[in-house]
Simulated scan of single mutants.
Amino acid sequence: MTYGGTLTKMQTELGNPIQYYLVFENSFLNVNQLLGKEMEIVFDGFQCLNCGKSKKIFRQGFCYDCFYSSPAVGDWIMKPELSTAHLGIEDRDLAYEARVQLQPHVVYFASSSELKVGVTRNTQIPTRWIDQGAEQALAIVEVPNRYLAGITEVALKNHFADKTNWRKMLTNDVVSIDLLAEKTKVQHLLPSEVLDYFDINAFKATPLYYPVLEYPKKIASLSLDKTPNFKGILTGIKGQYLIFEDGTVFNIRSNEGYKVRILV
């Protein structure tokens, strides 16, 4: 059977294990059903997720022009501390930025390779944690806008990692961490503007269970630009990665905007 269309990040459903779905324009695929089976990925071209044109993808599923013009990929996305909508100051499109920035955000701890700190909208929990391949996660503080979350993350980044080591995450080289114990250590590190939002008992740690039959010992990343046709047996799904029997891993998120056919 063949599924096809433009790749966007896999949709997920919390469960034991987490359920993963590839959603295309006219069809969808529950990827969990392919575990232990052979699948083929064929690269068919590009389609920008913003303008819809068949232009080469530059970053994050956007062509070059859209990446530097769309408000959906402003600098404040990757650096929340640069958010300015709370001041009424526009970056690219104030109406869009206000919708995204002026809503509750969570600063959290996650263990996906080692302990890391991150930021997400509260509506993206637990999706954000799943996308990062976290084994468990715990909210540190919930604040009313993206700016406050950003300055909190900056304060904590001086003491904790803010990036996931994707190789360790995919080989399951994960350190066991007591997230609540770590949370008890951070109150004195928080910006003064955020202290009123801190409550040690406000949240509980969330464990996450991934559909992985076997973790690889060594991994190699699949690039559709270099290998436009790949066939392998699927042995796991974690984060936004497909894991294959031969140690090949394919990051769906970093290939958004690529048009593919998937043969199963």
Rank of each mutant, 00 (worst) to 15 (best):
T2E: 15
Y3H: 15
T6S: 01
T6M: 10
G15T: 00
P17E: 04
Y20N: 10
L22A: 05
E25L: 11
E25H: 07
S27I: 15
L29T: 00
L29F: 04
N30C: 08
Q33A: 14
E38Q: 15
E40Y: 10
E40H: 06
E40S: 09
V42A: 11
V42G: 01
F43E: 00
F43Y: 14
D44G: 03
F46R: 07
C48H: 10
K53R: 13
K55H: 08
K55I: 08
K56V: 07
K56E: 10
Q60I: 13
G61Q: 05
D65M: 14
C66R: 12
S70Y: 03
P71L: 07
G74I: 14
I77F: 02
L82V: 01
L82T: 10
T84A: 13
L87M: 10
I89Y: 02
E90D: 05
E90R: 14
E90T: 15
A95R: 01
A95T: 12
Y96K: 00
A98D: 00
R99A: 08
V100L: 09
Q101E: 12
Q101F: 07
Q101H: 10
L102C: 10
L102N: 06
P104N: 09
H105W: 12
F109H: 08
F109Y: 12
A110P: 00
A110T: 14
K116P: 05
V117A: 11
V119P: 15
T127R: 08
W129E: 01
G133N: 11
G133R: 08
A134M: 07
Q136C: 07
V141E: 00
R146P: 12
L148T: 08
A149Q: 12
A149S: 13
G150F: 09
E153L: 14
K157T: 00
N158Y: 12
A161W: 13
D162E: 06
R167H: 14
K168L: 09
K168I: 01
M169Y: 09
L170E: 02
N172W: 00
D173W: 05
D173H: 09
V175T: 14
V175Q: 11
I177C: 02
L179I: 15
T184V: 08
Q187F: 15
H188C: 03
L190V: 13
D196R: 09
D199E: 03
A202P: 11
A202C: 02
F203C: 12
K204Q: 02
A205M: 05
A205K: 02
L208S: 14
Y210F: 13
V212A: 15
L213H: 13
E214L: 14
E214P: 07
Y215R: 11
Y215S: 04
P216K: 13
I219L: 12
A220R: 11
A220P: 00
A220I: 03
L222R: 11
L222G: 07
K226P: 06
K226F: 11
K226M: 11
T227A: 06
F230A: 11
T235R: 15
I237P: 10
Q240S: 12
I243V: 15
I243F: 04
F244P: 03
V249R: 13
N251L: 06
N251K: 13
I252V: 06
V260S: 15
V260Q: 04
I262C: 06
I262D: 08
L263P: 04
